[in-house]
Design a protein around this nucleic acid. Sequence first.
DNA 1: TACAGTTATGGTTGCCATGACCATAAGTGT
DNA 2: ACACTTATGGTCATGGCAACCATAACTGTA
Lengths: 242, 242
Amino acid sequence: MDDWLKDSDEVGPSWLTVDLAIFTLRDDQLMVLLVERGLDPFRGMPAMPGGYVQKKENLRDGALRELAEEAGIDGSQLHLEQLGTYADPGRDPRGRVVTVAYLALGPDLPIPTGGTDAARAFWAPAARLGDGTLTLAFDHQTILTEALEEVRRKIEYTAAATAFCGDTFTLTDLRTVYQVIWGQELDPSNFRRKILNTTGFVQPTGDQRLPPTGRPAALYRRGQAWLLNPPVLRATTSGQRG
Amino acid sequence: MDDWLKDSDEVGPSWLTVDLAIFTLRDDQLMVLLVERGLDPFRGMPAMPGGYVQKKENLRDGALRELAEEAGIDGSQLHLEQLGTYADPGRDPRGRVVTVAYLALGPDLPIPTGGTDAARAFWAPAARLGDGTLTLAFDHQTILTEALEEVRRKIEYTAAATAFCGDTFTLTDLRTVYQVIWGQELDPSNFRRKILNTTGFVQPTGDQRLPPTGRPAALYRRGQAWLLNPPVLRATTSGQRG
DNA sequence: TACAGTTATGGTTGCCATGACCATAAGTGT
DNA sequence: ACACTTATGGTCATGGCAACCATAACTGTA
């Protein structure tokens, strides 16, 4: 069967990798997971966690395996989604390496332990992706910048924001997710009304949680809906929406 | 440099292809472009147009080249966007073939001429993707079904609907796009108000077009906006939105 | 010319989601 | 008892929206 796949002047083999854009909330900041590369090329430089997809593995399984190997994170709990594929001929000095970028969102995750290929893994503030203080291997700067914008959009139209919360959460927890990611304050009362009117977004558990100070807050868990109707739209500078 | 990319028990080379989900509007129907495969595997079976990405080519250029080769379509006019990547180990009997699916939207395109690899190319109603009357090569049934759902969503939140229209179009032309793709009637008057209130969606040209009968309609061209604010949301069966 | 038929455009009304804002509930510590 | 803090609930004016009606501007026909 392999004789159908012939090398030629114009077409040749390529190597397949997955890279992970892993975001979480820590200390009221949006953080992205980076590893320090342990091997050439770009040895010692920060990069997205990732690696080769194995012969008998599909993309999602490969992403989950790399998540565990390089970052020590059990991905079965978090939201995993394909972002895009990057295959420019010059993106990897080793030759044609095609990478499929995955987006992973999770609640405040344990500080990862360094893995085999990665010298060490660490959280970096997502804000540093935009301010030029970060130099990443390969085209990972581009990929992560696109990933960040995708996260901002995603929480408008889907229930992705709940992926940043634990199993149960208060509406203030959820509101904090939006505030941190969008960088703008939201009115607690209006936010509450909006969320509760969006069918299937959250389900009350019946329990409460006591904050350090103040009235206890009702706990919720994720609802069955993923696409939000109506969506939770960002405030627009221009036109009013209602 | 190639010595960094070693074959091993677990990791091996793969072949990179692009496949195209090309949609257009013909005779008030949403149509998808298919080719009859001229080579094994799946010779004679309908499939998405596509083929191998060349060594020194990026994904987008490869998609545009295949668009021209297999379908005789000049892609410089239409909207092209990456959809997703499919790489399951069993998806191609030849071995590990990774395909990047692209979504292409265009106005009523010329009937394509058969290309080199494809015996012939033809338009099929998109409705047939769902009713089981179509058997496609590889996992193309899955890919196209996901592509169709993406189109339906895309025209809600972006100006993608204008990609189905010509260079200039009337608001009725644009409304027809939504009606056909969503399969529901829209009130002309309300549609007009919504579109014109969405900043940057369309620009008046100042010209008019005479329909076969009835009042002349003002012509518009695409505006500069891509993300719509507010979006053009589908009517919901459940809750009212305003 | 008068008229019906057709399509584009414009206006009215009632409903409801929204943002701004205020009030109350239910905890904490002093 | 009181201040303080946070969660929850309500009011009100604005404006988007669906449903619907009215008018404009063209065609063809009597």
